[in-house]
């Protein structure tokens, strides 16, 4: 069953250039779908449309079968959580604690449960000692961790991560990948927006956007190898696959090495 259905959606900020141009896409419940594409290709715009922060000029969006509109947007935000590209845009509270609490208050979570979740998720992202700090007085990566904790704590059915790991150190990034894996195993629909092929490797499907249109949407294993599609949207092959491509171009035939490189790329 589709959890997100996007039908012929177009969106223009102002002027005549479309940020999204007749996009159709559906995402299954429990699926892991990465959204890739060049800077300005429309990834964040798409994510904001899904949670009703922007309203499409044409087309329809359905979440869990509910058509997105002014009267359903609150309900839909209980089902879809989004970690914003710029964590500063997500912060509303005076302290990190207030900030994580904010999303939970909107879900009308009971107080004891709320406290428990705040502490649990702050620990999970290693920010427990910072609960009383001002979110704006944190380092870039710390802000991203708090933003992630705030959304994880809401336990929504769908989570969109808009470049949520861009400023994390390698260990922190690996940890977030691990959260995604665990959540997805438990049935959460995961939608990372990223420029990192390493992050996209884990997904069931990859959607490549270019100039506001879907350039290609296919199973990850097909997109990962598709140098032409990737390069058309300013992306690049994973290193082992780049080497495989080089071997093919130069007539170097070594099937066992090629198989090895393929496995290597799947392991990140």
């Amino acid at each position: 069953m589709s959890v997100i259905e996007i039908e012929n959606v177009s969106f223009t900020y102002h002027g005549d250039k479309r940020a999204l141009d007749n996009v159709s896409l559906s995402i299954e419940k429990g699926e892991w779908v990465s959204i890739l594409g060049h800077n300005g290709s429309g990834k964040s715009t798409l994510s904001k449309l899904i949670v009703g922060l922007l309203k499409p000029q044409s087309g329809t969006i359905r979440v869990d079968g509910i058509t997105l509109s002014a009267s359903t947007v609150r309900d839909i935000r209980k089902r879809v959580g989004i970690v914003f590209q710029n964590p500063d845009n997500q912060f509303v509270g005076v302290t990190v604690r207030d900030d994580i609490a904010f999303g939970l208050e909107n879900l009308q979570i009971e107080r004891p449960e709320m406290i428990e979740r705040i502490e649990h998720y702050a620990k999970k992202v290693d920010m427990y000692p910072y609960l009383n700090k001002e979110p704006h007085a944190l380092s870039g990566g710390q802000k991203q961790r708090v933003a992630i904790a705030g959304i994880l704590a809401m336990k929504t059915d769908v989570i969109i991560f808009d470049e949520a790991t861009a400023m994390l150190d390698p260990e922190g990034r690996e940890r977030v990948m691990e959260f995604m894996r665990t959540l997805n195993r438990e049935g959460t629909t995961i939608i990372p927006i990223t420029h990192e092929m390493k992050e996209a490797v884990m997904s069931d499907r990859i959607v490549v956007l270019k100039d506001g249109k879907v350039l290609k949407a296919d199973k990850s294993e097909n997109i990962l190898k598709d140098k032409e599609t990737l390069e058309r949207s300013n992306l690049e092959l994973l290193l082992p696959l780049e080497i495989m491509h080089y071997m093919n171009e130069n007539g170097i035939d070594n099937p066992s090495l090629k198989e090895f490189l393929w496995q290597l790329s799947l392991n990140g």
Binding site: H38, N39, M167
Partner: peptide, 12 residues
Amino acid sequence: EPTSGLDPLGRN
């Protein structure tokens, strides 16, 4: 962190 958030072509 000048290249965080840049697409790979832009980063390179």
